[in-house]
Every structure is written in C-alpha cells, then in structure tokens.
C-alpha cells in the first residue's frame, strides 16, 4: 500500500515546490485543456517538450513519472485492441486473415495514448510538488467565489485536511488488525467465497468501530479547542502569489493559445 506513486508528494526543494498551489492548479487546468485540443503531433510534441522541461526543473526523476503511468498500461493495451477492431478508415496497412489494420486506427490510438501520458505527466507534476495540505488550501481559496452560492468551502477543505491527516494512522491500524486476524487463522489470500467474505468482514468491522471511536475523540478535541462548525475563524496559513506564480499561469495559458492556434489555423 505504501509504494503507490500516483498522486504522491515528493519532498524536494525546487522552483515548482515553492509555487503557490493556486497557481499550479490553474496552470494544470490550462494544460489539461490544451491536451484535449486536437493540435496534431506537432502540438503534442511541443507540450511534451515543455512538460519534460518542467519535470526536470522540479528535480523529479523520470522513473517516478513512468511508474505513475504503470496503472494505465493495461488500459492503453485494451484501447489499442478495441480501436484496431472498430476503426476501419484510412489506408489499409496490414491484413491477416479476418484481421485488417488501418492507419487511422493506429493514429487514433496514438492520440489517446499520448493524451493520457501527457495528462499523467501534468497531474504528477502538480501532486509531486504540492503538499496535500497546501493543495487543500489552494482548492479552498479557488472555490471561495462559490461560497456566495452556499457552498461550504471551508468545511469541505477541513474535511479533506482531516482525511489526509488520518490516512497514515488508519493504514497502520489496518495493518495491525490484519495481523491480529491472521493470528486467529484468517487467510486473506486463499479460501472459498464464504471464507473470503468472513475474512473481509473481520477487517472491515473493526476498522469501522475504530474509525467511529477516533471520529468521536477528534470531534471532542476540536470542540474543546474552540472549533464551531461554520463559525468565523482566522486562517493561519496564508497563500502568497509571487513572480513565479504569474509566470507559470501566463506560460500555461500561452501554451493553451498556441495549441488552439495549431489546431484551427487551417480553418481560419
């Protein structure tokens, strides 16, 4: 459970680590939109080059980014197979008995795979350089305008923050219960369906009981320290926009504009 790379924060000291999470989230949204603009292989090439430069600048290792893509491999293979069988336009490239492969099928598949890879690169760049807690603050601030519409942005942010805080504690707890039940002869890997269900119950029920207990304690601790749901508070962590933040947002939007230009220059 502890070697999941997708969405993991890597504590390093780089230009990207120091940026305001709001700037990074805005830039990420711009780039994600850019990825979906059909700017052809030239456009994707430019995007990939920029993202690779950014990953280098963030001092991240490529093996880390590649690892983050691993869960997508199966999906990519699946997509390729479907596309080969479904898309039958363009030039015929290859025939083997009933199987025929057209170049459009390959092109479409390549587009999708490249887009997926670019998306993963973008999101990894964000999550690997932003502490989960800063991300929460960034989202809270960005959602501020919706507060007037009655969206409890602060409560949502507080909930996310508490969830993040308790994930490691609960993983430890799950590990302990798993071991305790294994000591009572539970086999979490083998066994009939009935045995499997009982094995899972022996983990889930205690986890629920413990979570409720913790939630109860936590609510007391929060109230005792003066927390009132919905009441006015002063936020300790203030986010500050710097020069780098403006550069990143402007850069990302310029990139988006360039993609739009590349995609539609023929039609103008």
């Amino acid at each position: 459970m502890k070697n999941v790379t997708l969405g993991q924060y890597i504590p390093l000291d780089s230009f990207f680590h120091k940026l305001d999470p709001r700037a990074k989230i805005c830039a990420m949204i711009a780039i994600l939109i850019a990825v979906f603009i059909p700017a052809g292989f030239v456009g994707y090439g430019i995007l990939a080059a920029v993202l690779i430069a950014c990953i280098l600048r963030a001092k991240l290792q490529f093996s880390f980014v590649i690892k983050a893509m691993k869960p997508m491999v199966m999906m990519m293979i699946f997509l390729t197979i479907i596309n080969v069988f479904v898309i039958k336009t363009g030039n015929l490239l290859y025939t083997l008995g009933p199987v025929t492969i057209y170049d459009d099928a390959l092109k479409q598949t390549a587009y999708i795979i490249i887009r997926l890879a670019l998306m993963i690169m973008t999101t990894t760049l964000l999550t690997a350089t932003t502490k989960p807690m800063d991300m929460t603050l960034g989202i809270e601030d960005l959602l501020k305008p919706f507060e007037k519409l009655g969206v409890p942005t602060h409560d949502i942010a507080m909930m996310i923050a508490l969830a993040l805080r308790f994930i490691p504690t609960l993983i430890d707890e799950a590990e302990r219960i798993l071991k305790a039940q294994a000591s009572r002869g539970v086999d979490f890997e083998n066994g009939s369906l009935k045995e499997k269900i009982s094995a899972i119950m022996s983990l889930i029920v205690p986890m629920f009981v413990s979570c409720f207990q913790r939630a109860d304690d936590l609510a007391d601790a929060m109230e005792a320290r003066g927390y009132v749901v919905g009441a006015k508070r002063v936020r300790y962590k203030q986010l500050k926009f710097g020069r780098g933040d403006y550069i990143v947002i402007i850069g990302a939007n310029l990139l988006l504009a360039l993609m739009i230009f590349l995609a539609y220059r023929g039609t103008i």
């Binding site: 302990r176 305790a180 119950m201 022996s202 889930i204 205690p206 009981v209």
Partner: peptide
C-alpha cells in the same frame, strides 16, 4: 494477542 486486542472483535 495484540495490543488493544479489543479492536479485533467483529
């Protein structure tokens, strides 16, 4: 028997 064994009851 683990520490805080009461948490294994289900």
């Amino acid at each position: 028997v683990f520490q805080f064994a009461e948490y294994q009851l289900f």
